[in-house]
């Protein structure tokens, strides 16, 4: 199989995945007890009000009829109107998706930028004090809940030192990066810990491999040996791990966005589930599924580049 054929087959695999996810979330959302009318009217809903609102929202139709409306909408690019916000779902997501993408992107960059060099330092000093110190710090990152890390950072760097704003999202790009700095650190911290520990273990696994010993024996400079022979091979497993963790990162964004008042899709998803806002839940799940699928695809492509055996 050529690489092009492999790539096309990978892309085609995504289509049925989306269809299955779309159907699953449609059914699962409706299997949850209660519905949007319960959430909207709360304890005060009279029978008449419940019946009227159910009719207005189309929730008095059979699940099959609702499914047909949903699929017709998806086919025509119309994901419906939010039951809670009363505006088109596409508008709602378009306003918020870039925020989450920037946040998770920054968090990933932060995590990788910190984790890769520190993994080298830790591996090259295995079981000595730099290794123990780095692992100790990242153990804290792994074991601390995101909301706790976020509140600590907010209290110290925003409320006390006033170096950063206490949450929110700015107007200009500069302001946005400034506002998202602490949330990205918060979100990236535990991710960096996972990457660092995995990469350290991978480096330790390859650093004494025969081809590395041979490269050194050939007289190659240590930097070149590390970059070409150690890092490239150690990264294969880590890239897989990073790809798999994109979903977790999006999950972590839910909490980070709440703590830092960042208006992304994470917060929107939580609010939508609690308000049984089916069109938003369905659309967001599809969008997030696309993002995760694309992340997996990129992971596969990077792996193919790192390891030419992949895709053959």
């Amino acid at each position: 199989m050529s690489r092009t054929t492999w790539l096309i087959s990978r892309l085609l695999q995504i289509v049925p995945t989306f269809l299955l996810i779309g159907l699953a979330i449609f059914v699962l959302a409706r299997l949850l007890p209660g519905n949007a009318v319960m959430a909207m009217l709360g304890d005060r809903g009279t029978d008449e009000a419940v019946a009227r609102l159910s009719h207005d929202l189309g929730l008095d139709q059979s699940i099959f009829a609702q499914l047909v409306v949903f699929l017709e909408g998806v086919a025509s690019g119309n994901l419906g109107r939010s039951l809670a916000f009363h505006i088109p779902v596409t508008q709602l997501i378009a306003e918020r998706l870039p925020v989450t993408l920037i946040l998770t992107g920054l968090a990933s960059v932060f995590a990788i930028a910190i984790a890769v060099p520190l993994a080298f330092v830790a591996a090259l000093n295995a079981n000595r004090w730099p290794d123990l110190l780095i692992r100790g710090i990242f153990q804290f990152g792994l074991s601390s809940p995101i909301f706790y890390v976020g509140l600590v950072l907010l209290t110290v760097f925003a409320a006390w030192l006033r170096w950063f704003p206490v949450g929110g999202y700015g107007e200009s790009w500069g302001e946005r990066l400034y506002h998202l700095f602490l949330p990205a650190i918060t979100l990236g911290f535990s991710f960096a810990a996972v990457v660092m520990r995995n990469l350290r273990a991978s480096i330790l696994g390859v650093i004494h491999a025969e081809y590395v010993v041979f490269a050194r024996a050939k007289g190659l400079r240590p930097g070149i040996v590390l970059a070409r022979h150690v890092l490239r091979n150690a990264l294969i497993a880590t890239v897989t791990l990073i790809g798999l963790h994109i979903g977790s990162l999006l999950g972590g964004a839910v909490i980070t966005e709440s703590v830092f008042a960042v208006p992304g899709v994470g917060r929107l998803m939580v609010d939508s589930i609690f308000s049984r806002d089916y069109p938003v839940i369905q659309a967001l799940t599809l969008v997030l599924a696309i993002m995760v699928s694309l992340a997996f695809l990129v992971t596969d492509i990077v792996q193919m580049w790192l390891d030419p055996r992949v895709g053959r």
């Binding site: 319960m38 709360g42 609690f274 308000s275």
Partner: peptide, 11 residues
């Protein structure tokens, strides 16, 4: 319970 579930049982 989450709110829609609680309200559904209440109603």
């Amino acid at each position: 319970l989450d709110n829609p579930t609680r309200v559904a049982k209440y109603r």
